[in-house]
């Protein structure tokens, strides 16, 4: 196992898949000559050339639609949308073309595109560069949504997504590209469905995904040390379809649930997980589940306001203590 950064894991996955299959291409703003805003496509332009590593015009709906059309006849495009905020512009093609074409053609056509995009709140980027949109993507039939929390997942999910015959949206995070972690040396394909226990525990399940998995792990450490509460942390690396069995198994074991999400609460991952708990294992609960979510505001520029809008490990700790009456 080599230790590498999250962006290096993404770069390696694309490099290996491009070497294997000449129909794998990479498209996006500044992915080529500039090597990618977050370096995820570094070096690929020099190695594979302008026909396969394509610097696009700033036309998100246009180039996303173009990639989808190419995928209809066997091309395997990996689209990088520089910020998930810009993906709003490409929603028409993602939802109306990629997600629906298999169904409305009676299974004749499929759009095996991969759309990668950082979708978190970084540092003072303001309202139009800080939105979290995973809640929007996960509500659409015909689209897979995954969100890697580690370099290993980033590598293995991107490899699997490129080979998978469905359209896959990969929700990344601006603040995680330099995170280090172990990545298997050979080909490794991470599942595109399911969840995993990132830390086993007995007393309460903390559900997280992407960056919030790390808040949950930090909170679990603190709660174990200072309050003797043994938290289980479940990494919901797949947001669509959510892992009903995994959610049920953990809640049936701990009987308590806290869901941590960086996005605002309404119509979010937390609401959906609580709905699944109600449907699958309501009578296992010893306490009402809680959500730790962002404030329902456009993200402000001022650093204090921005921090106040977005949850953290501390908020997860507070939610657990509240649940235990402490």
């Amino acid at each position: 196992m080599a230790v590498m950064m999250y962006w290096e894991a993404l770069q390696r996955a694309q490099d290996e898949e491009m070497t294997r299959d000449p129909l794998v291409i990479v498209m996006g703003e500044d992915v080529g000559v500039a090597g990618g805003t977050y370096k995820a496509t570094k070096g690929l332009y020099d190695k594979y050339g302008a026909e396969r590593v394509i610097d696009t015009p700033i036309s998100e709906n246009g180039f996303t639609g173009l990639a989808i059309g190419a995928s209809f006849i066997g091309v395997r495009p990996v689209i990088e949308i520089m910020s998930v905020n810009f993906a709003w512009l490409a929603m028409d093609q993602i939802f109306n073309s990629a997600a629906k074409v298999r169904y409305m053609s009676g299974g004749q056509l499929t759009a095996p595109v991969v759309i990668r995009s950082p979708g978190g709140t970084a540092h003072q980027l303001g309202a139009q560069h800080s939105a979290r949109m995973e809640k929007v993507f996960m509500g659409i039939a015909g689209l897979r949504v995954v969100t890697p929390s580690t370099p290993k997942q980033a590598y293995g999910m991107l490899k699997a997504a490129i080979r998978c015959n469905d359209p896959v949206f990969i929700n990344e995070h601006e603040l995680m590209y330099n995170m280090k972690g172990e990545v298997p040396d050979g080909d490794y394909f991470h599942p595109l469905e399911g969840s995993e226990v990132a830390r086993p525990g007995r007393d309460v399940t903390l559900f997280g995904y992407n960056i919030s998995v790390h808040w949950c792990l930090e909170a679990a450490e603190f709660l174990a040390t200072h309050h003797g509460i043994d938290c289980e942390v479940v990494d919901l690396f797949t947001l669509s379809p959510l892992d009903r069995a995994g959610i049920k198994a953990s809640v049936s074991k701990t009987h308590r649930a806290v869901i941590a999400e960086e996005a605002e609460a309404p119509v979010g991952v937390g609401s959906e997980v609580i709905a699944i708990i109600n449907e699958e294992c309501f009578f296992e609960l010893d306490a009402a589940p809680l959500r730790v979510s962002a404030k329902n505001v456009p993200i402000p520029y001022n650093h204090k306001l921005e921090k106040a809008a977005i949850p953290s490990a501390k908020d997860v700790v507070h939610a657990v203590l509240k649940m235990f009456g402490k």
């Binding site: 246009g62 639609g65 059309g69 190419a70 995928s71 209809f72 006849i73 073309s97 074409v101 004749q108």
Partner: peptide, 29 residues
């Protein structure tokens, strides 16, 4: 699809980029 009729789409203007993408694929192949 067998006869390369790649579909009717109901969002006005939706097929413009899809057609360009099919052309990109044809060129690559």
């Amino acid at each position: 699809v067998e006869h390369h009729f790649m579909g009717g789409y109901a969002l006005v203007g939706g097929p413009f980029p899809l057609a360009a993408g099919i052309a990109k694929g044809l060129k690559m192949k």
